[in-house]
Amino acid sequence: MFKGSYVALVTPMDEQGNVDYQDLEACIEFHVENKTDGIVSVGTTGESATLPFKEHVDVVKSTVDIVAGRIPVIAGSGANSTSEAVFLTEQMEALGVDGFLSVVPYYNKPQQAGMVAHFEAVADATSKPVLLYNVPGRTVADMLPATVAQLAKHPNIVGLKDATGDIQRLKQTQALVPDDFVLLSGDDGSSCEFLEAGGHGVISVTANIVPKAMAEMCKSALNNDFEACRRIDASIEKLHHALFIEPNPVMPKWALYKMQIMKSAMLRLPMVLPELASKKVLEDILIEYGLTK
């Protein structure tokens, strides 16, 4: 369940800042054609923080409809208010999603016991599988391995997206959770190492731009061909770093715009287009990799 390369999909927007559903379809078809294993819709990269509830649900529904069962769709349903996270989860339960990704509540810095209560409430609100998401670089609060292990006892909580970039943290978690508990990297730069250490896949920002490479990297690792995994990772290493020189999803949106997969790189305020120097760095890499001319 939920193994391989899952793209943390951007939410395309037009010049007026409205969701561009035509470009959303173009992005999804790009992933289906390039063998992405699954899609995460309206997570952090999908600008969940600035999409109102109705729009959030509409984007997920459209994603499910466009995918039409060809690959799994995981819906982002995180919030820093437990009642809001539960509400979002309940609203999307019947849309045909294959599961939910729920982030550690941000800003309010819950205790570990608060995280347990939060995620159990979310998992109780659905019959679908739930992936936990730990990204302390954004949320400030850090979900510890012992907390993950406690939550893994819930029948609906099936895995973790770990964006710490800390392989020792992965090993600590592995020692505490069941063998079938899914462990996915949320840090592209260390994802190859994560896979070599026994991770099951990645929820990737880089996959927005090079979906085939990320899918092949994960497939190689899952087949224990770590030499191929490392070779593919090295071939896209510059992209891993360039996509984060400004806060995500600024740079992946700019890349997709330059690749002509999206007509606009527009973001929702308070996010804005990248600085000229950042654009130049990324555009040079896109040319080097043969993704643009």
Rank of each mutant, 00 (worst) to 15 (best):
A49I: 03
T50C: 06
L51R: 10
P52T: 13
F53S: 14
F53E: 14
F53A: 14
F53T: 14
K54G: 00
H56L: 08
H56S: 12
V57Q: 11
V57A: 15
D58E: 15
V60E: 09
K61W: 10
S62H: 15
S62K: 15
S62R: 15
V67K: 05
V67D: 02
A68V: 01
R70H: 02
I74A: 05
A75C: 12
G76Q: 10
S77K: 08
S77H: 04
N80E: 03
S81N: 13
T82I: 03
S83P: 00
S83T: 07
S83E: 11
V86C: 02
V86T: 00
L88W: 05
T89H: 02
Q91A: 15
Q91M: 14
E93R: 08
A94M: 10
L95M: 09
L95I: 15
L95N: 11
L95E: 10
G96V: 13
G96N: 03
V97C: 03
V97T: 15
D98V: 03
G99F: 04
F100D: 08
L101P: 00
S102M: 00
V103C: 06
V103F: 03
V104L: 10
Y107H: 11
N108P: 01
P110Y: 00
P110L: 00
Q112D: 07
G114L: 08
V116K: 12
V116L: 13
H118I: 15
E120Y: 07
A121D: 05
A121S: 14
A123S: 13
A123D: 13
A125F: 01
T126A: 06
S127R: 13
K128L: 15
K128A: 06
P129A: 05
V130D: 05
L131P: 00
L132H: 06
L132P: 09
V135G: 03
P136Y: 02
